[in-house]
Amino acid sequence: MTVAALALCLLLGFSAFSSLALSLDRHHRAAFRTPVPKRRAGGLRAAGWAGLALSFAAAVAAGGWNFGPVQWIGSLTGSALLVVALMAYQPGWLRIAALTALPLAVLMLPLVLTG
């Protein structure tokens, strides 16, 4: 797996875990200072699971079925640690970081496809 593919998996995993964390009332209150509306919680959960699926697809496309899932688990570990650290120390920054990670993932996509 190339560095660009690993970065893509990390960015997608970070955004996905951020969405899943913000779908929970406790974490949503910490980041937004308001309870999570039911409609938003469902959308955040759907976006989180879709992000994890995209991250898995990117890992398998870049590393094949032999190494892709193993490297995907490693990138999920790193991205989950980043989400936990942000939720613990600066929960307000989580939404900004997650929204910044998505355009960076889109920028990484051409590098992964060509490399």
Rank of each mutant, 00 (worst) to 15 (best):
G51P: 01
G63S: 12
R26E: 14
R95D: 09
T114N: 13
G68V: 03
A61F: 10
I73P: 00
L22P: 06
P110N: 14
S15A: 07
L6H: 07
H28K: 10
L86P: 00
S55A: 09
H27M: 14
L22R: 09
L22T: 07
L94Q: 00
L54Y: 02
A98T: 01
A80F: 04
G13C: 03
W65D: 15
L109S: 10
T34S: 10
L52N: 00
A97P: 11
A62C: 10
G78T: 09
R45N: 12
I73Y: 00
R45Y: 04
V106Y: 01
L24C: 06
G74C: 05
G74R: 03
P35S: 09
A50R: 07
W65M: 15
T114A: 14
L81T: 05
A61E: 08
T34W: 10
L86E: 00
R45W: 08
A88L: 15
G63P: 08
H28I: 14
S79N: 09
S15G: 10
S23C: 05
R40T: 01
H28L: 13
L113S: 05
L109I: 12
G63M: 13
T77E: 04
V60E: 03
L99D: 14
Q71D: 08
A47N: 06
A88I: 15
P69G: 07
A31V: 07
A21T: 09
L11G: 01
L44Q: 13
A47R: 08
F32W: 14
L22K: 07
L113Q: 10
A47T: 10
L24G: 03
F17C: 07
